[in-house]
């Protein structure tokens, strides 16, 4: 699997991304995923317009914008989860390690691009079986219990659950359930982890734990997070993309976007004038 190689790919980036990334972090030109000229439609309604950006290797990229701006839709194109909705289709190109994601088998793609959802959604199974699920369905040859422990450690949940791995996942608190979902996604060793407002159903303490975790997880995978919380984007991410009514308005290194936004609409949004 390519995950172990982690190639630093130089791909032709669309201008907006190149300029933003090249200024601050030249090494960030290694892109895990590249989105070019992406249009997205729900039936006749277009919800994304000509979006082009890159997701840098081992960085946190956050997508922000007001409700309905298309940030969740954009996230769901990256592992093709949009396909579960009837009438949804896209135009454009999305590359993962230089290969089109649309050309590959969707189940194989989703093993490489994991996802964590808005509300914790553990399976009605034990803690162990939740984390082991991805390994089992993918017929992993690894010793499962080692992999489960490793994933739970990565998700900073191991110490809290190691003595009752066989209890139902529903006995955990909401924050623990969400970290369990992260561990479940990490177990199949994805190259990219997508998080769709992972803290919106959690209390501040659980949120802080998850944010801390995301920063640590950068070392083992590339992270893309959708958030409606601008402070969260500022705290955890290296790059931030601001979307408005389906268009990518600005995509910059996070400190730059929040201190010297290049577009008046970005400035209006981050200073709280709308959204």
């Amino acid at each position: 699997m390519q995950a172990s190689v982690r190639p630093a790919l130089s791909v032709n980036l669309p201008p907006i991304a190149t300029s933003a990334l090249a200024r601050e972090t030249p090494e960030a030109l290694a892109m895990r995923m590249t989105i070019s000229k992406l249009d997205f439609f729900y039936g006749p309604k277009q919800t994304l317009f000509d979006v082009s950006m890159g997701i840098a290797v081992n960085k946190v990229t956050s997508l922000i914008g007001p409700s309905g701006c298309g940030k969740s839709t954009l996230l769901r194109t990256l592992n093709r989860m949009y396909e579960t909705i009837r009438g949804a289709r896209l135009r454009g190109e999305i590359l993962l390690d230089g290969q089109s994601i649309l050309a590959q088998d969707v189940t194989a793609l989703r093993r490489r691009v994991g996802m964590v959802f808005q509300r914790p959604n553990p399976f009605p199974k034990s803690i162990f079986d939740n984390v082991a699920y991805g390994l089992k369905i993918n017929g992993s040859k690894l010793p499962i219990s080692d992999a489960v422990e490793k994933s739970l450690r990565h998700a900073a949940l191991w110490d809290e659950v190691k003595d009752h791995l066989h209890k139902s996942a529903y006995e955990l608190s909401g924050g623990q359930q969400q970290r369990l979902c992260i561990a479940r996604a990490l177990a199949v060793e994805p190259e990219v982890l997508l998080l769709d407002e992972p803290c919106s159903a959690l209390d501040p303490i659980s949120t802080a734990k998850i944010e801390e975790l995301l920063v640590q997880l950068k070392d083992i995978c590339t992270i893309t997070i959708v958030t409606h919380n601008m402070q969260q984007a500022a705290r955890v991410s290296d790059f931030t993309a601001f979307l408005l009514t389906g268009q990518l308005i600005e995509f910059s290194p996070t400190p730059q976007l929040f201190t010297t936004p290049g577009d008046p609409r970005t400035e209006a949004y981050i200073t709280g004038r709308f959204g």
């Binding site: 189940t107 989703r110 959802f117 369905i137 199949v188």
Partner: peptide, 17 residues
Amino acid sequence: PNPLREAAMALGASKWK
């Protein structure tokens, strides 16, 4: 609940799985 379906499919499970 639908989120359970999404969770399984996001892990690379086929529809039948």
